[in-house]
Design a protein around this nucleic acid. Sequence first.
DNA 1: ACTGTGACGGGGC
DNA 2: CGCCCCGCCACAG
Length: 114
Amino acid sequence: MLAEIRKVVARIPKGKVATYGQVAEVAGFEGAARQVAWALHNNSRGIPWHRVLGAGGAIRLPGENGLEQRIRLKSEGVVFRGEKVDLTKSGWQPGAKQTTVKKSPASSKRASRT
DNA sequence: ACTGTGACGGGGC
DNA sequence: CGCCCCGCCACAG
């Protein structure tokens, strides 16, 4: 599954970010946000791990790594809102075209939550 | 085989 | 807004 997770993370366009839960869902491991974090933690080499954030766009990465991530994201043009990222602007939409941004193509309804 | 832990997530207080 | 609890899945001891 590392391949799946890495695959999804690799699909995140520059300047945008995705949450662990989102990556997990897209990868097919809905609800397995921890596995995504685990995957990155154990195998973050070769993938834009810095584009993966926690719920709400919060960097759940402690230490210098977190600072590194934050810097890299800002460098890519990610809109930061305080200590977090503005998912409303830099939130990655899986499947959507970051260059065409027509409208909501598929947009799976997360009726399973709230 | 069991228990503990984690770059998580959401709800409750 | 911060802290606690429960649920989640996979890995390590």
